[in-house]
Design a protein around this nucleic acid. Structure first.
Lengths: 243, 243
DNA sequence: GGGGTTCGTTTCGCTGCCGACACGCCGCTC
DNA sequence: GAGCGGCGTGTCGGCAGCGAAACGAACCCC
């Protein structure tokens, strides 16, 4: 499978910073492959060297850590347009795993070519750094959730942030419904809750009229109210780089 | 106050990557001031624009988020040599605050000069990105702690990681004791615990013979055992950039 | 020397969340 | 169509951790 960056279906969606022709040519140049992986596939394995970065072209993925006894913490979710594996590529051994949550398509960017941007395309190199900083800001927010929010606030915050991110991608319907592929186990692992308590908390929010779910689709009744329940008010950045 | 990068007391400590003469000159060039702040001072204010980055020259600091109702989550601790405020400088409004935990000395690096490195000194620009990725890895680890470790494991993990970081700086005595300026409130805010439970957990670990404290100094009895209690086994990177 | 502040420590009752378990639904595969 | 695995739902008892409150020690500054 191949797909030129000139035909990228993601770039025209409006949330990505315009690129100069020369930059787009460079991006197209360092993109060596376009691969598809099924749900559950390991994109980066913890402890191994990770000589490639990826741009998530379609589908969902997540970064996670596992304790020796098996307890798992999901660090953040990755959506189309996100740069995957910067941190993993930086160190000799990845400190976390990355797994495909749904079927995904990935643009493969060899590490050495990405590092090469620093010498040849300073603007794109800066964008790499920017994307790294943004990922950190998401992990920050998740840490604040898990550390200081109640179970209901956490669930609400997770749903609101994902809603906003998906919305910018143009993947939310007019009635505020969107594809939501997380299982309750994923939600529990992301929020530092048990599976059972996650279920009860979801039921409670549903009973409160915050949202409805229908096989894999989530519909928000009132995003503003959910935001208030979540104590979450940050906006996602309206425009961002895409590499 | 001024201090040339040529006389930097930090750089010779052995944990920092050697720099070329030209790079050192550039660093010295973009360092515009050397300032001292007292404990408790705000280094970066949440919500405000942050036109400067800093390198922490001496002392401790921390990044944190505050919920509207005052609950506070400490995201990570900053030690000498750490680059401060990369994420804050990247966005229009800082999404977190940074506060001096002890008295600190800071090297002031204006944002525009740091961004300038991307055009002129690709090696140093890469180092900036590396330092950002490393900070993210620390936040990752903290999120895994808060989400999945028990109170005792969290406290142990916090102490072990700080011990390892301080040790690389050469600030740990032969008997494994070092300066430990955190109050129990800081520990609680970092670990997502209440103050009272933090106190009890510290007492428990002390009773187990993990460590002793004596006005602001913490002494580890057996770092290996503490590591095992913490379920924490990663090594800090032996060498890293200093800007 | 007195009064204020910061920090650590402890007590007490309470609850949010956990862990184990069981059950029902659905879609898959053979 | 039978069996099976993945997922959501509920129940129950238990405990880890919470919140409020009070007190002592150390340190500070008039």
């Amino acid at each position: 499978m191949q797909l030129s960056c000139y035909e990228c279906a993601l770039r025209p969606c409006g949330m990505f910073k315009p690129v100069a022709a020369e930059e787009l040519a460079t991006i197209n140049d360092i993109k060596k492959q376009h691969v598809a992986l099924p749900a559950g596939a390991a994109i980066v394995r913890a402890g191994e060297d990770s000589p490639q970065l990826f741009t998530l072209y379609s589908g969902w993925a997540f970064r996670f850590k596992t304790l020796p006894d098996g307890r798992r913490q999901i660090l953040n979710f990755l959506l189309p347009g996100d740069l995957i594996g910067l941190q993993a590529a930086m160190f000799d051994a990845a400190l976390h795993g990355i797994e495909a949550l749904t079927g995904v398509q990935l643009c493969v960017l060899p590490r050495r070519d990405v590092w090469g941007l620093f010498g040849t395309m300073p603007g794109l190199a800066f964008d790499v750094t920017w994307l790294g900083a943004r990922e950190e800001s998401i992990v920050d927010e998740n840490l604040a959730s898990v550390g200081r929010r109640t179970a209901a606030e956490r669930v609400a915050a997770l749903i609101v942030t994902l809603y906003k991110r998906v919305k910018l991608l143009g993947l939310v319907d007019d009635d505020d419904s969107f594809d939501f592929p997380l299982t309750q186990q994923h939600i529990a692992d992301a929020l530092g809750l048990s599976l059972v308590h996650t279920n009860k908390t979801l039921a409670k929010l549903r009973r409160m009229g915050m949202f409805t779910t229908h096989n894999g689709t989530l519909t928000l009744i009132n995003p503003r109210v959910l935001e208030r329940v979540a104590l979450y008010f940050d906006e996602e950045m309206p425009q961002r780089p895409l590499i």
